[in-house]
Design a binder for these strands. Structure first.
Lengths: 238, 238
DNA sequence: ACCTGAACACCGTTCAAGT
DNA sequence: ACCTGAACACCGTTCAAGT
């Protein structure tokens, strides 16, 4: 045929629409084909299978993240912005985090986000090896957080109320600290919670970076009574 | 009938076996029934549906985690142990992390782990509100990490090699920091990587806790020239 | 109380065939 | 080059019926 009925990007857009309407479990090749006014097997011309389609959708989710490369902000400010953008991008579509978490896409969009994170960590003074691990940590945090945020959201797959009562019964009886933390655990102020967890990571980077720097230049500080060294307990590992 | 053919825990055990053999995608009610020598609909007598079955499997995964309550170890040592136990438990069965991440079970086994984490953070001096957020952060990290560890493991669902070459092409051309970090990104020394990320969180807790303590007792430190305060840049938020 | 048989309403995927 | 029609081999779930 001279004029193809659909193009690849049209399929992806339709998939995003369908995702918003039906959720990930409702994102079906048959329904997708129906929305595009074609037959299900036709999709195999554009994608090798459902997984490749999902991968493309996941890639599309982070299409607009970190587009204008951060200016000369400090590294922690950069990281906060990247994290916020990534979270917002995942929140933009129903089950966004679940979609992204299930894929390990290697694409421009994904690597651009990764690159921005690595850059931020480099500015913080952490070496490449740690930086990559830290990037994954941040990514895991965001994905886990938004997955829960969306699981408890308007399209929740399970009965939140019944789960809460189950928690109350168990916690009240046997788990005092869970009981005491109940309010924070079921807090729906996701912005605040997201920030708290992210600041934890940022604080960790700050300390790890300063420790690394101290070890890298021992002659500068040796015997000078470095600030904070006195009240630091001896480390015990393993 | 007087003698039931199967009990609930036998179903769960069979499900774990099937999970190891076939993975999460192969964990099917029909196959499970076949392994138990019953018909698929019979499972609905013991479970309300597949999700409840998966929830029970997820619960079983962490059955033996944090059983002997930690002795008088310092909080960071406790956290390291909990994290290591949790990771090992998830690694014990194929797709363990994926199974657990998909569920939000409220059970004794899950709350016991949560309780141990909250306890560790309390010992570190963080308040309950932060402690719950931190617990989730740690959990997200572990789940994300092990999911990737298992995704790249012996039963990998995708072709790792082809993904690596795709990464190389992209990174070499346009993403220098990813290119430089390639070795660490594809490192299979998961023990070391897991530790690095966990220490990041622990370092964060240490700093956040010390900052909170400082703010909680400002009269003690006011005007005394607190160590490190001089070279700390003014904070800028939001 | 516990299990079966048959059926329903779906899936993803393959493949020869159309245009 | 792009799409269809028909079919295959599965799914989770329901439900009346058996014992």
């Amino acid at each position: 045929m001279k004029t193809p009925k659909i193009r690849r990007d049209q399929v992806i857009q339709a998939a995003l629409d369908l995702l918003d309407q039906e959720g990930l479990d409702g994102l079906t090749l048959r329904k997708l084909a129906l929305a595009l006014d074609i037959q299900a097997p036709s999709l195999y011309w554009h994608f090798s299978g459902k997984q490749e389609l999902i991968d493309a959708v996941a890639d599309a989710l982070v299409m607009n993240v970190v587009l204008p490369q951060s200016p000369d902000q400090p590294w922690d400010s950069r990281l906060r912005q990247i994290a916020a953008e990534l979270r917002q991008a995942l929140l933009q579509h129903r089950d966004g985090a679940r979609v992204f978490a299930g894929t390990y896409v290697v694409s421009d969009n994904v690597l651009r986000v990764s690159e921005a994170m690595l850059e931020a960590f480099a500015l913080a003074g952490v070496d490449v090896s740690c930086a990559s691990t830290y990037s994954f940590s941040v990514l895991y945090y965001i994905l886990g957080f938004v997955m829960e945020e969306q699981a408890l959201g308007p399209h929740s797959a399970f009965d939140v109320t019944s789960r809460k009562t189950a928690f109350e019964e168990l916690a009240k009886r046997s788990y005092p600290r869970n009981w005491a933390a109940q309010e924070s655990i079921f807090s729906t102020d996701f912005d605040a919670r997201f920030s708290t967890g992210l600041e934890l990571i940022i604080a960790g980077v700050k300390q790890q970076a300063s420790e690394t720097a101290r070890k890298a230049a021992p002659l500068l500080n040796a015997g000078k009574g470095v600030a904070g060294a006195a009240r630091r307990r001896p480390e015990r590992r393993g």
